Deep mutational scan, measured.
Amino acid sequence: AQVHVDGVTYDFDNPEEAEKFAREMAKRKGGTVEVKNDQWHVE
């Protein structure tokens, strides 16, 4: 699973880890999390 944050792509073998990371980053940035094509996007 991939997580996109500020133009940087992070690869995770485990989708749950990807989701956890995406939500944590969004919380830190005060942003939102979107899922597109099985990829997490932190805005």
Score class of each variant (00 low, 15 high):
residue 1 A to L: 14
residue 1 A to E: 03
residue 1 A to D: 04
residue 1 A to Q: 12
residue 1 A to I: 14
residue 2 Q to M: 08
residue 2 Q to I: 09
residue 2 Q to F: 07
residue 2 Q to S: 12
residue 3 V to S: 00
residue 3 V to G: 01
residue 3 V to R: 00
residue 3 V to E: 01
residue 3 V to K: 00
residue 3 V to D: 00
residue 4 H to V: 15
residue 4 H to Q: 08
residue 4 H to A: 06
residue 5 V to C: 15
residue 5 V to S: 05
residue 5 V to D: 02
residue 5 V to G: 01
residue 5 V to N: 02
residue 6 D to N: 12
residue 6 D to V: 03
residue 6 D to M: 09
residue 6 D to S: 07
residue 6 D to K: 03
residue 6 D to H: 06
residue 6 D to Y: 07
residue 7 G to Y: 02
residue 7 G to A: 01
residue 7 G to N: 06
residue 8 V to H: 10
residue 8 V to Y: 11
residue 8 V to L: 10
residue 8 V to C: 15
residue 8 V to R: 11
residue 8 V to K: 11
residue 8 V to T: 10
residue 8 V to F: 12
residue 8 V to S: 04
residue 9 T to L: 08
residue 9 T to Y: 09
residue 9 T to R: 11
residue 9 T to G: 02
residue 10 Y to E: 01
residue 10 Y to D: 01
residue 10 Y to G: 01
residue 10 Y to F: 10
residue 10 Y to I: 06
residue 10 Y to W: 06
residue 11 D to F: 15
residue 11 D to V: 14
residue 11 D to Q: 14
residue 11 D to A: 11
residue 11 D to I: 14
residue 12 F to T: 01
residue 12 F to V: 00
residue 12 F to W: 00
residue 12 F to D: 01
residue 12 F to A: 01
residue 13 D to S: 11
residue 13 D to N: 09
residue 13 D to A: 10
residue 13 D to G: 06
residue 14 N to D: 14
residue 14 N to W: 03
residue 14 N to I: 03
residue 15 P to T: 10
residue 15 P to S: 12
residue 15 P to D: 11
residue 16 E to T: 09
residue 16 E to V: 10
residue 16 E to G: 06
residue 16 E to S: 10
residue 16 E to P: 00
residue 16 E to L: 08
residue 16 E to R: 09
residue 16 E to K: 10
residue 17 E to I: 05
residue 17 E to L: 06
residue 17 E to G: 01
residue 17 E to Y: 02
residue 17 E to V: 03
residue 17 E to H: 02
residue 18 A to N: 01
residue 18 A to Y: 03
residue 18 A to M: 01
residue 19 E to A: 04
residue 19 E to I: 03
residue 20 K to H: 09
residue 20 K to F: 04
residue 20 K to N: 11
residue 20 K to P: 00
residue 20 K to E: 12
residue 20 K to A: 13
residue 21 F to E: 00
residue 21 F to Y: 05
residue 21 F to M: 03
residue 21 F to R: 03
residue 21 F to I: 02
residue 21 F to L: 03
residue 22 A to W: 07
residue 22 A to H: 02
residue 22 A to V: 05
residue 23 R to W: 12
residue 23 R to C: 15
residue 23 R to D: 13
residue 23 R to Q: 13
residue 23 R to G: 09
residue 23 R to Y: 13
residue 24 E to S: 03
residue 24 E to H: 02
residue 24 E to V: 00
residue 24 E to I: 03
residue 24 E to L: 03
residue 24 E to M: 07
residue 25 M to G: 00
residue 25 M to K: 00
residue 25 M to W: 02
residue 25 M to H: 06
residue 26 A to K: 03
residue 26 A to N: 04
residue 26 A to G: 05
residue 27 K to R: 09
residue 27 K to I: 08
residue 27 K to W: 02
residue 28 R to P: 04
residue 29 K to V: 15
residue 29 K to Q: 12
residue 29 K to S: 14
residue 29 K to E: 10
residue 30 G to A: 08
residue 30 G to P: 04
residue 30 G to I: 05
residue 30 G to K: 08
residue 30 G to F: 07
residue 31 G to Q: 08
residue 31 G to F: 09
residue 31 G to H: 12
residue 31 G to R: 08
residue 31 G to I: 11
residue 32 T to Y: 13
residue 32 T to K: 11
residue 32 T to Q: 09
residue 32 T to W: 15
residue 32 T to S: 10
residue 32 T to M: 09
residue 33 V to H: 04
residue 33 V to W: 01
residue 33 V to F: 05
residue 33 V to T: 06
residue 33 V to Y: 04
residue 34 E to P: 04
residue 34 E to R: 15
residue 34 E to Q: 13
residue 34 E to D: 10
residue 34 E to V: 15
residue 35 V to R: 14
residue 35 V to F: 15
residue 36 K to T: 11
residue 36 K to N: 10
residue 36 K to L: 11
residue 36 K to G: 07
residue 36 K to S: 09
residue 36 K to F: 13
residue 36 K to Q: 11
residue 36 K to A: 09
residue 37 N to Y: 10
residue 37 N to T: 05
residue 38 D to M: 10
residue 38 D to H: 11
residue 38 D to I: 04
residue 38 D to W: 03
residue 38 D to T: 08
residue 38 D to R: 08
residue 38 D to L: 11
residue 38 D to C: 15
residue 39 Q to F: 07
residue 39 Q to I: 14
residue 39 Q to H: 11
residue 39 Q to S: 11
residue 40 W to D: 06
residue 40 W to T: 06
residue 40 W to S: 06
residue 40 W to I: 10
residue 41 H to I: 14
residue 41 H to K: 06
residue 41 H to E: 08
residue 42 V to W: 05
residue 42 V to K: 05
residue 42 V to D: 04
residue 43 E to A: 13
residue 43 E to R: 15
residue 43 E to S: 14
residue 43 E to M: 15
